[in-house]
Design a protein around this nucleic acid. Structure first.
Length: 334
DNA sequence: TAGACGTGGTA
DNA sequence: TTACCAAGTCT
């Protein structure tokens, strides 16, 4: 009988290095659902290199979901600062408390899917990897591998159905998911795939066609506008005035400098800027003009500048502090 | 359903 | 420097 995609892929996977160092080896007993959940949420749209040290710090500080659920919001948001997509951190808090309240993680994909921050991908990944369910795990890696294996024009048509068709039994579903993602990240890459090293090239229609890179079709990206904004710099006795941003929206719930609206035109106050920070978001780029304020703006607190790293500033505002520092401005007591 | 939602690394 | 991309989710 002809070997399946899963047979060939898992045969290869047992002999190669895994990308997630904290995961148990193939065929190992079930993994800690807390660690699978935490790392999968962190890995949403975020690279393994970025996540690895952050994941280790989180687990060290909060070894169980009960410990995380008991932590103050601000501590968790501070630990998340710099990781981006802060709705994940807000959902992480809500999810941890829901799980602790019900006495542990649910064990099925359907129940996991109902928890905050767990979408189609993450619920399936936890069900397969932590609980040995035959869940169909489709992330961007798997979608690309499947699109090439079956030469699907994509980006979406038929991917899930084909992924379901090649997903093996429950016993191997978790290893298969991780092997597919590792394959997509290291061999079946978006550009310049290494088909010569691919354990499933014999199954691959796109490889047979000689045009693997054509699959899946890319979709056009919307243009990214450029905006301007003011951030207020207020300093007193070696402390900087910070506020907490509204709970939803951009950088929601995070510590920040007080800001105004983002606008297309350069605001008048920008003429008094002591520094300008240029920052790129997913859907727009921003010039943030730092202006000294005579009095504190909004409800907030004085954060001692020697402990500014404890505030948990997102990268945008950490860059503001660095910009003023390098401009030799203010920061008299730092 | 398409846009909102961060950040850092690579080519 | 710009463009693309990363173990997606929510509305």
């Amino acid at each position: 009988m002809r070997a399946t995609v899963a047979d060939d892929l898992l045969g290869h996977y047992r002999t190669t290095a895994r990308r997630l160092p904290w995961r148990a080896p193939p065929g190992a007993p079930r993994q800690d659902p807390y660690k699978v959940w935490l790392s999968e949420v962190m890995l949403q749209q975020t690279t393994v290199a970025t996540v690895t040290p952050r994941f280790e710090r989180f687990v060290e500080r909060w070894p169980t979901v009960e410990a995380l659920a008991a932590a103050p919001d601000e501590d968790i948001l501070q630990e998340w600062a710099g990781l981006g997509y802060y709705a994940r951190a807000r959902n992480l808090i809500a999810c941890a408390r829901a799980v602790a309240a019900r006495g542990g993680f649910p064990r099925t994909e359907a129940e996991l899917r109902a928890l905050p921050g767990l979408g189609l991908y993450t619920a399936a990944a936890i069900a397969a990897i932590a609980f040995g369910e035959r869940a169909v795990v489709v992330d961007t890696n798997v979608a690309r591998v499947v699109a090439r294996l079956f030469a699907l024009p994509g980006p979406a048509e038929g991917i899930r159905e084909k992924a379901a068709a090649i997903t093996p039994d429950a016993e191997r579903a978790g290893d298969f998911a991780q092997a597919m993602m590792d394959l997509g990240a290291t061999i079946c890459r978006p550009r310049a795939p290494r088909c010569g090293e691919c354990p499933v090239s014999a199954h691959c229609v796109a490889f047979a066609l000689g045009t693997p890179e054509e699959f899946p079709a890319r979709k056009a990206k919307a243009a990214r506008p450029h905006r301007h904004g003011i951030a207020w710099w207020s300093e007193r006795d070696g402390a900087l005035w910070l506020v907490r941003r509204p709970p939803t929206g951009l950088l929601g719930g995070m510590a920040a400098l007080p800001t105004g609206e983002w606008t297309d035109a350069v605001p008048d106050e920008a003429r008094r800027a002591i520094a300008v920070v240029r920052h790129g978001f997913t859907h727009f780029s921003l010039d943030l003009h730092l202006v000294e304020a005579d009095a504190p703006v909004g409800d907030g607190w004085w954060q001692p500048l020697e402990r500014i790293d404890e505030a948990g500033l997102p990268t945008l505002f950490a860059a503001c502090v660095a910009a003023v520092r390098s401009a030799g401005g203010l920061l008299r007591a730092a």
